[in-house]
Amino acid sequence: MTAPLLQANRVSIAYPTRDGLLTAVEDISFSLTAGERLVLIGPSGSGKSTLLRAIGGFLSPTAGDILIDGSAITRPGPDRMTVFQEFDQLLPWYSVLGNVRYALRRGKHLSDDESGRVARNWLVRVGLGKFLDAYPHTLSGGMKQRVAIARAFALQPRLLLMDEPFAALDALTRRHMQDELLSLCEEAGSTVVFVTHGIDEAIVVGTRVLALTPHPGRLAASFSVTSKSRVRGSPDFVGLEREIQHTILSPAEAFA
């Protein structure tokens, strides 16, 4: 059997409050092998982003542990790269090309020539070949997210973490970005943990979907996504969408 790249072993995460510890994530376990795309979905307050931050090394579990390649995650590292929902992830004083080159020089210690070659390659692949010299303030939200995604792929992390990266985009741009991300992931064989509120997005992007309960977040169910169920509007897609919906919503909410 292939050893898992990522393991969460009975992970609980709590925050201190005036009234004591507030549990955000409780007793969650899962594993992820290289090349899988795991989507975390659940209602607000289910601990999706909290769990993602712990995988990134920005939070420590209150109980249990999270392992990457068999070693406990205790801090952020270059083996994990995060793309956030916010558009302001770019350094405003660098051009589109400069932002990706800077990350490559700092993160992978590439020379100027090599960082430029790699950065151009990924920016062209996300459709920004004509905007290499543009600055972040001149870009639309979707274009900024493309730069952030190109930067993430260029760094070739062991694990790509994405926290609702398309939530603030309009519906058409969001759908295009989902398809674009899926194509890049399949081409590069990337391993991804992706957080979303959208069931349709979870099915399109993921190979596996973990549904979390309302606060505190516990694992409610795991769903496998096949190539047939990923086709929007198909009977398999609609069936899986309904199954996930009924898992994460109350009966009243599911039929609202």
Rank of each mutant, 00 (worst) to 15 (best):
R232M: 10
R242P: 00
F87R: 05
A150N: 09
G233H: 11
S49I: 10
R232Y: 12
W93L: 03
V25T: 11
E86S: 14
V209Y: 06
S44T: 13
G206Q: 05
H176P: 01
A171C: 03
S29A: 11
V124K: 09
V204P: 00
A63Y: 10
V100D: 06
V205W: 02
D88Y: 13
A148E: 01
T173V: 15
Y94L: 15
I66A: 03
L52E: 07
L160T: 04
P157Y: 10
A119D: 05
L210N: 05
L128H: 08
G20V: 03
R208G: 03
A252P: 00
V238C: 08
A168N: 12
F131V: 05
D112N: 13
Q89R: 08
R125K: 15
G142I: 09
E36W: 04
I244T: 01
R117E: 14
V25L: 11
F153N: 00
V100R: 10
P165R: 05
D179V: 07
L169K: 02
L249K: 03
R75P: 01
L128P: 11
T138S: 15
S12T: 15
A72M: 10
V204D: 01
K228L: 13
L159M: 12
T207C: 10
M177W: 04
R174Q: 00
E253S: 07
S46D: 01
G47P: 00
A168H: 05
K48I: 12
I244G: 00
L67F: 12
P216T: 09
E253F: 01
A202F: 00
S60P: 11
L160Y: 08
V192D: 08
G189F: 04
L67Q: 15
L169T: 02
V205R: 00
L38C: 08
S44N: 13
P214A: 07
R208T: 08
Q178E: 14
L21E: 14
L123H: 06
C185L: 13
L21A: 14
L155E: 05
F58Q: 12
A167W: 02
A72E: 14
K48E: 10
H197D: 01
G217E: 04
M143L: 14
L184D: 00
A168I: 02
A252S: 12
A72R: 15
V192E: 07
G233Q: 03
V11S: 05
F131S: 14
L32A: 07
P78N: 12
A202H: 00
E114G: 02
S71F: 02
R10Y: 01
K144C: 09
H197F: 01
F84G: 05
Q245R: 15
L51T: 06
L249I: 02
S49N: 03
G129L: 13
T138I: 08
L128Y: 08
